[in-house]
């Protein structure tokens, strides 16, 4: 049964220095508030996993929390580059960042294998690209039935996955709808999980297209209204496109980024 916790307690209990941490949410429902709490608690040496390390990982990388990044697309969607990510890769600032790079199809299948309790996943992917030269976790495999050569990628098993959802009930059953991305797979693939939600309600009213994560499959739930901002929660908020555009200038220089981090994360305090 999932525990109902504060965000600060949830991160303190579940996210440890050196962990493999996945924050998922495909454009929609990105757990920004939890990312900020990880920064505030000064977590170090994390291996950050995420299909689309966008602005939230730009912030974690720029804050120096990450040693390694496992990903498939690192940009500011619709805007351009991630400047903190680029600074880390190109100039090792604030510290060097190791990369393990995949395609979306590969990453999605790695989570599926992790959620399924399998050691690896099989797909038609990566063939002829330069990715397998640099990512040793992409290997050819022969189909035992047809003899065809396919691609294998190992299961992802994060120490902890963090996602944001619309709501949960008091037993910690979590309800997600709209673009549900890879969150279900990422939670089920992980050893521990923290779900932040817009609200905790007495009863979950069914919604078309919903995904429900049973409370007994989740470690902890924290109520964090607006916890996906500047991303959004369908039914509760819309995407703050202006923030994504503004991030380009904020993140372009180390000093403006540090000032932002200081004002909006370190001094902001935890959302209880």
């Amino acid at each position: 049964m999932a525990k109902l916790v504060s965000l600060a307690d949830g991160v303190a209990d579940l996210v440890h220095d050196g962990d493999v941490v996945a924050l998922e949410g495909f454009t929609h429902l990105i757990p920004f508030a939890a990312g900020h709490e990880i920064i505030r608690q000064r977590r170090q040496e994390l291996t950050l996993v995420r299909m689309t390390p966008d602005v939230v990982y730009d912030q974690l990388i720029g804050a120096g929390c990450a040693r390694r990044l496992v990903f498939s697309w690192g940009g500011n969607p619709g805007v351009g580059s991630l400047h903190r990510f680029r600074d880390a890769v190109q100039h090792a600032w604030p510290r060097p960042l190791e990369l393990e790079e995949h395609s979306h199809a590969g990453m999605a299948n790695r989570y599926v294998a992790g959620a399924s309790g399998l050691p690896f996943a099989v797909l038609r992917g990566y063939t002829g690209t330069d990715l397998p030269r640099h990512t040793t976790n992409i290997r050819p495999i022969t189909c035992p039935f047809t003899g065809e050569t396919l691609t294998a990628v190992p299961a992802l098993r994060p120490d902890v996955t963090v996602v944001h959802a619309q709501r949960a009930d008091r037993a910690g059953n979590v309800q997600i709808w709209g673009i549900t991305g890879v969150q279900k797979e990422a939670v089920l693939a992980a050893h521990r999980s923290l779900v932040t939600v817009e609200e905790i309600v007495d009863e979950l009213e069914p919604v078309p297209g919903q995904v429900v994560l049973p409370g007994w499959a989740v470690s902890a739930v924290a109520e964090v209204p607006g916890g996906a901002h500047p991303s959004y929660a369908q039914g509760y908020s819309v995407r703050d496109n202006d923030f994504y555009r503004a991030w380009d200038a904020v993140s372009r220089h180390r000093d403006t980024f540090r000032a932002w981090l200081d004002q909006h994360v370190y001094r902001a305090g935890a959302v209880a």
Binding site: T52, E101, S103, T127, T129
Partner: peptide
């Protein structure tokens, strides 16, 4: 080179499999 690029771009996303399939 890959480990020390002049410009780091976003990467693959869905494109390798879109281009293949």
């Amino acid at each position: 080179d890959y480990d020390a690029p002049k410009v780091r771009l976003p990467g693959a996303g869905g494109a390798p499999e879109i281009a293949a399939s």
